[in-house]
Each structure stands twice: as structure tokens, then as C-alpha cells.
């Protein structure tokens, strides 16, 4: 069966016009248009470009949410097996449009996407995790060179074949960590790497050190005696019996538990679900992880406004940053709705 492909390009590559036509609204045309002709040749009999969706760069970037919806629904009508975006080379707005379409296609239609961009195109950093982006030259002079690996990768993905390394396939590494068995054991690779480093020879680290986001600090609390304070913890404090069965490592969920009627945590009412530290002390007295006793006393004495009636807990042991970010987003949303002013987050 022929693989059905929909191609996404901008107004310039569709031959509509340059900057003066950049507000062109999404439209769909049957078959291959512009660079699609070169793809058609590369695919031969195996795949067919059934439609091309065109959108102006300015229109897309100024109306991102609406434009994405329009583009995707046009694509959907053609029941594609795969989508190709660009190549966008070093055109920034075109790259972002390609990336946004690619990400949405993957999430909404659940089919693979191949895009093409110059590594410094801002679309690369924004969307490389979602789509395979083939590395291209800066300008459209490199069209031929871009089409060959894009078409080859597209066919492989559509057939569900195993991919080679980013270098072999020509795509920009997405930063997705994937296990594989190496030819030599880790200790031997370490010795080799050290010898190279000592000699001043070139070597490649197997894991570039991570970089984390930053957020602006929140404003200070004006009157703590009126503030509603919530407790959140990654130390795994849960009611006795771990009712949500939060995992001891690599948590996939968080729990929300009522503090009503609780003035003190003890082995009768609570425990830790965390598998990454010696649990004996936490299980003896969970206030050591989640300081309910002291905060209750402060609440009664009027030293704080109130203690929020729920605490939130997860296990921060081997839990991915992606999961942690998702928990935080959901917890923050609920705390906002509940009118919580400040959070004490405890970690083990």
C-alpha cells in the first residue's frame, strides 16, 4: 500500500509570494507543491504526497493556536500516515510554524513527522523533542541535500523500521535517552576516556550534564498571620497503608490527603512511601518529614493564618523531571483555586 503523506510549507515555497504575502491564511492543495516535487521523486512508488497545506509565516505566528487548529484539521481530511514539514532552513518563523505543526500532529494525530531545519533555527530548540528534524543548510540552496535524508527517514518511520543513530539518519538529536548495549563495558570506556582526556585528545562524553529551568521568585508574603499555608512534600509522607499506592521509586502520581482532625503525625496514622532513604525515622514520627504538629500549634496560636486542609505528597525517588513538572502544575492549580498564599515544600 502506498504511504500517504501530507506536506506543510509556507507561502514563499508555495510560490504565493514573499514577505508581502506572509499573512496568507491556511489553504490546502491536492498533491505536491513546490519542494514537494523533489520529495515526490525521492519517494518513487512507495509514498505519495496526497496534499500540501500552505500557511503564511506571519499569519501562523500571530495566530498560533487558531492556525495550528486550521492546519491540522485540513491534514486530517487526507488521512495521512506521515507528515513532512518544510524544510525551513534558517527561516525562524517558518521553523517555528513547522515545529508547532509537527508537535501537534504527533500529539493529536499520533503519526510521525519529519521536519528539516538549520540547527540554529529557533524552531529546533523548541520542538526537537517532538519531531525528527533533519539538519539542513542555512538556505534553500541546500534543498536537494535536505530532501534525500528527509525522504529516507520518512519512509523508515512510516514503515515502522528501527532507526539508526542521529548521526546515521541525519537528524538533530532530540535529547531522548535510549538504552543500548555498547561494545565494551562501562569501566573500560571510562579508562579509555580518561587516557584521552589526559593526553588532550578529543573524546565525547556519553552524557552532557543537565541544565534546569529557572523561575522568577514570588513576591514576599505581606502578613503571615493572615496567610493560608499548604504543605507539599517529595519525601513520600502518606496516610498509613499508602492508599494511592504511590510507587517507592519513579512515582507516576501524587496524593492529596486531608489534614482535618489531624494535629500530629504518628505511626498509627501515617508512614512514608519513599524507597530512597532509611524509612525508620520517618515511620516513627512523620512530623520529621511533614511538620504538621508545629504548624498546627502555630495556627492555634495565631502565628500563621491557617494550615491548608490538604497536604500533597509524592515520592521524589528516581522520579522523572517530566512527571515532577506535571505534578507541580496540577498541585499549583488546585492550591491557587483553594486560595493558598504560600507553600512549604519539604524534600528528603
Amino acid at each position: 500500500m502506498t504511504i500517504r503523506i501530507v506536506h506543510f510549507i509556507n507561502q514563499f515555497f508555495a510560490g504565493i509570494g514573499g514577505e508581502e504575502k506572509a499573512d496568507h491564511r491556511p489553504e490546502v492543495r491536492e498533491g505536491a507543491v513546490g519542494p514537494g516535487i523533489a520529495f515526490k521523486e525521492a519517494f518513487g512508488e512507495e509514498a505519495e504526497i496526497v496534499a500540501t497545506v500552505v500557511c503564511g509565516d506571519s499569519y501562523f505566528n500571530e495566530n498560533m493556536a487558531a492556525a495550528v487548529d486550521e492546519v491540522i484539521s485540513m491534514m486530517e481530511n487526507y488521512r495521512p500516515d506521515l507528515v513532512i514539514c518544510g524544510p525551513a532552513f534558517n527561516a525562524g518563523r517558518y521553523g517555528i510554524a513547522c515545529g508547532a505543526v509537527a508537535e501537534t500532529v504527533v500529539n493529536r494525530l499520533g503519526i510521525p513527522v519529519v521536519a528539516g531545519m538549520y540547527p540554529e533555527n529557533p524552531g529546533v530548540d523548541m520542538y526537537k523533542k517532538s519531531a525528527y528534524i533533519i539538519e539542513t543548510s542555512k538556505t534553500a540552496a541546500g534543498m536537494r541535500k535536505a530532501v534525500t535524508p528527509m525522504a529516507r527517514l520518512a519512509l523508515k518511520l512510516a514503515r515502522g523500521e528501527e532507526l539508526g543513530s542521529p548521526e546515521e539518519e541525519g537528524y538533530i538529536p532530540r535529547g531522548i535517552r535510549k538504552n543500548q548495549f555498547a561494545a565494551e563495558r562501562g569501566s573500560k570506556r571510562a579508562v579509555e576516556m580518561l587516557l584521552k582526556k589526559l593526553e588532550g585528545e578529543e573524546y565525547t562524553t556519553e552524557y552532557p550534564m543537565p541544565v534546569f529551568d529557572r523561575v522568577a521568585p514570588a513576591a514576599a508574603i505581606k502578613d503571615i498571620k493572615k496567610a493560608k499555608i499548604a504543605l507539599v512534600s517529595s519525601g513520600g509522607p502518606v496516610p498509613k497503608g499508602n492508599p494511592d499506592r504511590i510507587e517507592s521509586s519513579s512515582a507516576t502520581k501524587f496524593g492529596k490527603y486531608s489534614l482535618q482532625w489531624l494535629d500530629d503525625l504518628n505511626p498509627g496514622n501515617s508512614e512514608t512511601a519513599h524507597g530512597g532513604y532509611d524509612p525508620v525515622y520517618a515511620n516513627e514520627d512523620l512530623d520529621r518529614v511533614l511538620p504538621v504538629d508545629v504548624l498546627r500549634e502555630m495556627e492555634k496560636a495565631g502565628e500563621i493564618g491557617s494550615l491548608h486542609e490538604y497536604w500533597y505528597a509524592t515520592v521524589g525517588n528516581g522520579t522523572s523531571v517530566a512527571n515532577a513538572r506535571r505534578f507541580a502544575t496540577e498541585i499549583a492549580k488546585e492550591l491557587n483555586v483553594a486560595g493558598v498564599d504560600a507553600v512549604i515544600l519539604t524534600s528528603t
Binding site: 529557572r214 532509611d278 525515622y281 520517618a282 512530623d287 520529621r288 518529614v289 515544600l345 528528603t348
Partner: peptide
């Protein structure tokens, strides 16, 4: 938000803005 944690370097690396050093990993408070 204030982060009460023992291993302050991790808190600094991951980006907390208000950090209070705690006692020890198995019993921060």
C-alpha cells in the same frame, strides 16, 4: 514557596528561589 531540604546544592541546581537547609535526608525536620 520555600523549599526545606537537606541537600541545598540540588535545590540550587534545580532552581528553587527560597531555600532553608534541613537536618538530614531521612529526617529533614
Amino acid at each position: 514557596m520555600v523549599h526545606v531540604c537537606t541537600i541545598v546544592p540540588i535545590s540550587l541546581t534545580v532552581g528553587a528561589n527560597r531555600i532553608v537547609p534541613a537536618v538530614a535526608i531521612p529526617h529533614p525536620l
